[in-house]
Design a protein around this nucleic acid. Structure first.
Lengths: 219, 219
DNA sequence: ATATTATTTTAGACTAGTCTAAAAGTTATT
DNA sequence: AATAACTTTTAGACTAGTCTAAAATAATAT
């Protein structure tokens, strides 16, 4: 039986690998999980004993197939619960984090399969992140950063990089929503900030920092 | 902050007081929670320090107002989640226990208030047990044991004493459901077993043991 | 009223997870 | 190649919750 804490470590490792693309360091995990490096080392030994990660002293970690499957299952649960909170309980997309963090650890296969059905088998969560299926398979959607696009390009918003409530609230206020069309009206050379037209035909200005945290697909 | 384990102790103590009507013994708690008396003693000290129970060595425990409020809040969450599982996710009434046991410890006021609303403010859970309101108030329904009734009495089923899956499945099979009308056709003197007519006009035989675990109100 | 039995508490030990401080290993700099 | 700087691991300690075995208290029976 895998513990609450072990699950959190696996999820953190999964996300770090996803971001960095290679073996994850002890320090990176410590920072992500808000704990100390020494604690991480202890846990890495345990996860290694359970064959959930590949770990050798000082060499960083990767997930074994078993570890990755476990991580994806937790992410599946997290994203389905987020969907439930937003769709059925009227949470905003910036409010779901804390409750979903707890709900993702509930152990009941029947519960999660029925929840999936109840939500009508959603493919992405309220932030546009893909929901792994029951076998841990991810539908890869190859989104790009809005900051990579050029003047007059038109695209559809599909997700965010930064998931913080502050950023999500800013997007809400600016009328930038999942599924919305975004047209690039102008790019200011000096600071790479953008002038864009949102779905409801309003022109707004966003900084390059913001554009680097918005995921889109070309239209 | 109150821990998962402390919550389980409070809930157990609440139910024991409810059943026995007086101060609860260490052994009773140990049995209920499936642990050893020594562990219970340790926890009682902690709960007492936190002013959740009234406890003096060798004298058993009762709940303080604060402790009772906390217990009722956990029970509220448990029963709302059970309702959700049965009403929205198609669980049977004998399948909800394990998942609800975990869900009841999720900490999020908004979540539970929205869930209550989503379920349309139910007054009782799928077993007929009353759901405390947000302030911990219980709507007392004074049900009686079916075994206390007489020949030709007619009543409505409102709940069960034994919540075990085996018993609940037996009731399902016998067509005895919450809200159903039950008419007592005959009482066998010898063993106090009953012949009853259920909602769908079928006559069935039940033992006195069974009748002692069915709650009803007179019609 | 005392002895027996049952219950409850204490004492001390164990596990999971965490921490600090020190030691060991790795990487970067000169 | 040697030293400095940084990262990671070990060692030892702490907390929450659990346990067994023994001691203390209460209840029961003679």
């Amino acid at each position: 039986m895998i513990s609450f804490t072990e699950e959190n470590y696996l999820k953190a490792i999964y996300h770090l690998i996803e971001q960095e693309g290679e073996a994850v360091t002890t320090n990176a995990i410590a920072e992500k999980i808000n704990t100390k490096a020494a604690s991480v080392t202890d846990m890495l030994k345990k996860l290694s004993d359970k064959k959930l990660i590949n770990y050798q002293k000082y060499q960083g970690v990767t997930l074994t197939p078993k570890g990755e499957k476990t991580a994806l299952n937790i992410i599946r649960k997290q994203r389905l619960w987020e969907m439930f909170l937003v769709e059925k309980l009227d949470f905003k997309w910036d409010e779901v984090h804390d409750a979903a963090e707890q709900l993702e650890h509930i152990k009941s296969d029947k519960l999660i399969e029925q929840l999936d059905k109840f939500l009508n088998y959603p493919k992405v969560d309220p932030h546009g992140d893909p929901i792994p299926d029951a076998k841990g398979r991810l539908q890869i959607q190859k989104s790009h950063l809005l900051s990579k696009f050029k003047k007059n390009d038109v695209c559809i918003m599909t997700g965010v990089v930064d998931h913080s409530p502050a950023f999500l609230q800013y997007l809400d206020k600016s009328g930038i929503t999942l599924g919305n069309e975004i047209k690039i009206k102008e790019i200011i050379e000096f600071d790479r900030s953008l002038q864009i037209i949102t779905g409801r035909q309003k022109t707004i200005f966003i900084s390059n920092d913001v554009a680097k945290n918005i995921l889109v697909i070309a239209k």
